Simulated assay, not measured.
Amino acid sequence: MWETYVCGLCVAAIVAVVLLRQTFGGNVPVACAALAAMVLVVLLFGRKVIREADPVTGPVHTATAAFVAVVIGLWLVAIVAAAPAVAAIPALYPLIFATLPLTAALTLTFLITLAPLALAILTHGPAWPSLPAVVAATLVGAVAAPIIGTTIMSTLRQRQQLTQTVAELADSRAEAARLSRRAGVAAERERLAREIHDTLAQGFTSIVALAQAVQAESDTDPAAAARHVELIRTTARDNLAEARTMVTQLTPAALQEGSLAAALRRQCDTLAAETGIAVEVGIGDDLPQLGMATDVVLLRSAQEAMTNVRRHSGASALAVQLRPVAGSVQLCVADNGIGLHPDHVDGFGLRGMRARLAQIGGTLSVSTPEGGGVRIVVAVPAGPTP
């Protein structure tokens, strides 16, 4: 746009020099050549110089000063050769303001605006009849130059601010993306840790316990040892199925094979077979449809509670209940073991249960009833969770 503006004014000045040659005379070829050279210099070097210049904050480079000096020098040659070349003076304003600091640009444009008047007085004297017209044109230039300059400088400042804002926005987006990736990795790592803890780790724990039982029973009770070997095989198969499922979609294999109630009964049967604990299961007949996400949380919570019973409780009996209660579904796991230590602190398993439940709006409570043992109550919303 500025190239079109500057070159258009120079061409208009050439036309004025040619059309007014009879009135003002002068060396028309020299004036036209100087104006044409201005057009050539602007087209060849103007865009590069203006892009590299920083009139708002930066210093004036040698190339910038040389460019401005050459353009002004060619214009001075043109007006000395032919007075109508003064029409190209507005073409100088944007070039100066776009390349020089504001103070220097205002000073230089003011001197340029006065140049035609000074030349007219030196050439024709104060009594020249056309002098009032030159004075009027000079006043117009003196008013127009600061306005054009201020507009250009405001545009440059806005461009710099926009560039800085865009850069800051890009940095902020990059930082947000980096933090989001880090948070995503941490969340995925925590989720996988919970999955492994609730499935594979518990299965391997059962295998270890059963292997120790087989070692003790191999000589004294071969039938029990064989039964425990079969349980080891079954648990290993279940662990393998869980591992494959985790790799594909992280949906518990137990839930793929049937309902939550059926999966919960199988978990209770496995615990009873492995430990000899008497497990009583009570599952309501009117359970609402919860959705896979909630089913997974309930199943994992039951698995974690049973693992704690196996490892820490020393219980001989366990009651597991799943039933609807006042707009929610409640899972209750209660044993008759040794209860909680007074200084009890939640371990990884319970923390994982709380984190899972928090994701679906569920709650967890752990208590020690008066009769002893531990009672874990998990409550989840009755509405389906995607």
Rank of each mutant, 00 (worst) to 15 (best):
M1W: 12
W2D: 14
E3W: 00
C7W: 11
V11L: 15
A12S: 14
V18F: 10
V18K: 06
T23V: 10
G26C: 09
A31G: 09
C32L: 08
C32I: 09
A33R: 09
A36N: 04
A36C: 03
A36F: 07
V39M: 11
V39Q: 04
L40W: 07
V42F: 10
L43N: 13
L43D: 05
L44F: 13
P55D: 06
P59R: 01
P59G: 06
H61C: 04
T62C: 08
T62M: 14
A65P: 04
A65E: 04
A65H: 05
A66S: 08
V68W: 01
V68F: 04
V70E: 01
I72S: 03
G73F: 13
W75Q: 09
V77C: 12
I79M: 13
A81D: 06
A83G: 10
P84S: 06
P90Q: 02
L92Y: 05
P94K: 13
T99Q: 02
T99F: 10
P101G: 05
A105Q: 05
L106C: 15
T109M: 11
T113C: 15
L117A: 07
A118F: 07
A120L: 02
I121E: 05
I121H: 01
L122D: 13
H124R: 14
P129V: 11
S130Q: 10
S130A: 12
V140E: 15
V140A: 15
V140M: 10
A142T: 07
A144K: 08
P146N: 08
T151R: 15
L156T: 06
Q160C: 02
T163F: 00
T165Y: 08
V166L: 13
V166A: 08
E168L: 14
A170P: 04
R178A: 12
R182N: 06
G184A: 13
E188F: 08
E190H: 10
L192E: 01
E195C: 01
E195A: 03
T199C: 13
L200W: 01
A201E: 13
A201I: 06
A201S: 14
I207D: 04
L210Q: 00
A211I: 02
A211S: 15
Q212M: 00
D221S: 05
P222G: 09
R227E: 06
H228D: 09
E230N: 06
R237A: 14
L240H: 13
A243T: 15
A243L: 14
M246V: 12
V247N: 11
T248F: 14
L250N: 11
L255C: 03
Q256H: 07
A261E: 12
D269W: 03
E274N: 00
E274T: 01
T275G: 08
T275I: 07
G282F: 05
D286A: 02
L287P: 05
P288C: 03
Q289K: 05
L290G: 00
M292P: 00
T294L: 01
V297E: 01
L298I: 12
N308L: 14
G314C: 12
L318E: 05
A319W: 15
Q321N: 11
L322A: 01
S328K: 00
S328Y: 02
L331P: 00
N336H: 09
N336S: 05
N336K: 03
G339K: 03
D343G: 14
H344S: 07
G349M: 07
R354N: 11
R354S: 13
Q359M: 08
S365G: 12
S365W: 02
G373T: 15
R375F: 13
V377G: 00
P384S: 14
